[in-house]
Design a binder for these strands. Structure first.
Lengths: 229, 229
DNA sequence: AAGAGGAAATTGGTTAACCAAAATTCCCTT
DNA sequence: AAGGGAATTTTGGTTAACCAATTTCCTCTT
């Protein structure tokens, strides 16, 4: 993924390409200027142009052919510009959208987990839960909490869901630390965790989903109302 | 992200770090070897070590501090190793998991779209739909189809959902082209598109969801049964 | 002996030079 | 004039060198 943090030079290059698309000077399927040329045109280093191209390639916006050049994807200009805008603001997700998606993905993950978990998965989740309980009240609480949830996601055996959760986790974590939102009493959180695991063991997806939604209820409401930054 | 395509050298570095974690020679919070040192230890260029670190940072596994060093995140080793494994196999998503997540995200997107779309959004979606109809039967059909779906996702006004959809789109597209799965008659697809837009206009999330699920029914079944590669 | 100051080494960030493969150009042959 | 092939240019890929900020460690002072 390109890396989440944009250097200003790299961002310059990406904005330039979006401008080229917008002005019609660059069309889908076109080969865009060579790295060296674009570097000197924009007054940035070639390395910055390269990382910009790599990020664009990660999102399927361009494709680089060795010793040949880099071409724009065969997509509508509106879509391409939209994609670029999205990836430029990818660092500035609002907390509500982030939590919304986290709940969406985790609900699906825990449902799949309740249906497809193996004995080995159960062992991993039990261990994660023990760790979670052990560190309640300490500074490592948040870390262990995420670890437990991640173990559930992985036990759902859908690698895409697990990966997307891991993509948004750093951002969620940032907000958690920023807002100090972990004010739910530890005992309640722990109980909910054990209840979730119980439903997973009993292969009860509906029960697991209900508890998970209750588990997230507080943070969802906080995100919806609390933090109009 | 990091870029989706791993060069063998970069992958070497990432695997090495996972091995260090596995053997306990590297613990959460530790500062890992400097770029130069690790480069010569592994016999790769320092640039490769850098891009490896950048990818790891994208997923929140490490954090790089200028002129100071790169440290492992404060997370359980199990989680960290899991994350690394996920990002290594991020190129080899199976089609079923991919389609599953695409449906999950698009359903949520179209529901939000039906509730939150503005007049400007409607204009954009109408245009995308016209383009879609215009190019049916041509080689640009798939492209225009994705463009229409993307316009819906963007009109849901949850940037995280739109971004995650764009992250998985290139992979989905690859499979689509590989399996030639677009064998549904153009008229049916077009009708469903128009029905979806109608529900969005009427702000009917349930109706929109139903049509979208029907729209994806064929490809979901194909992914579930057809392609056990 | 303890502490402050500064030089030297180490760090990630950046730039420039080099390499091999691909594309182009130009000239020679037919 | 058309075709083919080699030399040249252009391309992305890679490596090495350089820079400024940070850290470390030694030394000199008190």
């Amino acid at each position: 993924m390109p890396s989440s943090t944009h250097s200003p030079q790299v961002e310059t290059v990406i904005r330039h390409i979006r401008a080229l698309l917008d002005s019609g000077r660059l069309l889908p399927g076109d080969k865009l200027p060579a790295e060296r040329r674009m570097a000197e045109q924009l007054g940035v280093s070639r390395a910055h142009v390269r990382t910009a191209f790599q990020k664009l390639e990660f999102y399927g916006i361009v494709k680089t052919y060795p010793q040949s050049g880099t071409v724009i994807a065969e997509q509508t200009v509106q879509v391409l510009e939209g994609l670029i805008s999205d990836m430029l603001q990818i660092d500035s997700y609002d907390f509500e959208s982030l939590v919304h998606v986290r709940v969406l993905l985790e609900v699906e993950a825990i449902r799949m987990c309740a249906q497809r978990r193996t004995d080995k998965d159960l062992t991993a989740m039990r261990y994660a839960l023990e760790e979670c309980d052990k560190y309640f009240g300490t500074e490592r609480q948040v870390e262990k909490d995420f670890a437990f949830h991640q173990s559930i996601a992985r036990s759902g055996h859908n690698p895409v869901i697990a990966s997307l959760l891991l993509v948004i986790t750093p951002d969620v974590l940032t907000y958690y630390l920023q807002y100090r939102v972990c004010n739910t009493p530890g005992e309640i959180v722990s109980n909910e965790h054990h209840e979730m695991l119980r439903c997973i063991i009993e292969q009860d997806p509906d029960g697991a989903e209900a508890i998970l939604r209750a588990h997230f209820k507080g943070i969802v409401e906080f995100a919806k109302e609390g933090c109009k930054r």
